[in-house]
Amino acid sequence: MATEALALDGIDALYGDSHVLHSVTFSLQEGHVLALLGRNGAGKTTCMNAIIGFLPARKGEIRVFGERVGRLSPEAIARKGVGLVPQGRRVFPTLTVKENLIVAARGKNQLDHVFELFPRLKERTEQHAGSLSGGEQQMLAIGRALMGNPRVLLMDEPSEGLAPLIVAEVGRTIARLKAEGQSIVLVEQNVKLAFDLADEVAILNTGRVAFAGPASAARDNESLITQHLGVF
């Protein structure tokens, strides 16, 4: 049986008094891509914040390769091998491309690997990250997360605000990381991109899991998609 890389088990989370995640449960197998889908405000980014520890879960359990991480700080969870490519990229603007990568280095040196994945970054090592295009910043954000040798990679809307050509490139990169055996949770609004890459799908609606299962089952279930994603 495949190893469970990441599991959320009955997660409840609150922003102040407002209850935003209700008993969220899903799991990711090692080497798989799980797409976390849902409309705006469904709770996808909140889920990411709960996993990485910015918004500690009020109830339930989060496990990374079987180890409970629910009570840890974000930096401790990151050291357990959870890498997050945050929404909006959040690169360090006045650091150069290389500095952005080196500051994130942990464990085995991944610099050559990152430059091989993104040759564009290698051409711009000494450029300040703030002066990169949106697509290049996204590549840098992904590269920066990879520098920490994550066992589980969380990607929060990597295609957001990018031109279609760049979205396709980001998609190819994710496919390649998957082929290399990387376990990935992909949060996406771009449903087509998500279905192309995902092995499993979890669909959130107003903070509850509306569907969790194989991507193939969700892809062909038109009523599910219309009801919870409202696209296609």
């Binding site: 990485i52 910015f54 700080s73 974000p74 930096e75 401790a76 990151a78 050291r79 890498g83 997050l84 945050p86 959040r90 690169v91 360090f92 603007p93 006045t94 650091l95 500051v103 994130a104 942990r106 920066r144 997360a145 520098m147 920490g148």
Partner: peptide, 11 residues
């Protein structure tokens, strides 16, 4: 520049 982003790097 971004304290939260740095925490994501385990620092």
């Amino acid at each position: 520049q971004d304290e939260a982003a740095l925490r994501l790097m385990g620092a």
